[in-house]
């Protein structure tokens, strides 16, 4: 086994076990894991964040998708040790600070975008990243955003609707936030389009 310094800062605490630190949904976490432990298992079983689901364990279904430093990643294809030092967002971390559902979550509820709910966390994280990149997707782009995730229940119809609805909710929230900021600054809000 390589020494701690050779592992790029990961300390090997006892034979085969490594101490890593992650920032998960904003909270720092220290975990001791074997080198082969998948990030998905680390999140689910070590940190007990079971919202991240495992549908295939070979990188095809997308149920295990989490955001690693803001980028959507299949946590079944990443070793926990390689995530050392990363900021990770799981489905549990998507809600607003006050506990209300995020725009993407709310859109799924509004559009009946889930049935059994097993694939849902992976869609929610994927779409969250997708809308950060493209806040105003066309229906075709909405389909592209979810193009790599499998769902066996919904036939995707309402998930596509949910992507579009989430974009709409985000725009509305953005406008409200802007209006609030303008008022706070004592400025007269300009008439909207």
């Amino acid at each position: 086994m390589a020494s701690a310094s050779e592992q790029g800062g990961i300390t090997q605490s006892s034979p085969g076990l490594f101490d890593i630190s992650l920032i998960v949904n904003g909270a720092p976490q220290a975990v001791r894991v074997p080198a082969r432990r998948l990030l998905s298992d680390c999140l689910r079983h070590d940190l007990r964040l079971t919202g991240t689901h495992v549908g295939c364990e070979h990188g095809v279904c997308g149920a295990c998708t989490v955001l690693v430093d803001g980028v959507s990643v299949r946590s079944c294809l990443m070793l926990a040790v390689t995530a050392d030092g990363a900021r990770i967002t799981t489905v549990e971390g998507l809600t607003e600070p006050d506990g209300t559902l995020s725009a993407v979550q709310q859109a799924f509820a509004d559009c009946h975008g889930l049935q059994c709910g097993f694939c849902t966390p992976g869609f929610l994280t994927t779409i969250t990243a997708g809308l950060a990149e493209n806040p105003d997707p066309s229906p075709d782009q909405a389909r592209e955003i979810i193009g790599g995730n499998l769902c066996r229940c919904t036939g995707y119809q309402n998930i596509v609707q949910a992507v579009l609805r989430a974009a709409e909710l985000r725009r509305e929230a953005g406008l409200k936030r802007e209006a609030g900021l303008t008022r706070e600054a004592g400025l007269t809000p300009e008439a909207g389009p």
């Binding site: 689910r44 919202g51 549990e92 979550q105």
Partner: peptide, 22 residues
Amino acid sequence: IARLEDDRLLRGNGAYLDDLGH
């Protein structure tokens, strides 16, 4: 009407079999 079961599932608070018995 919108589903009553969704809120829990959307927050990642569902409890599927492998989410139990750690």
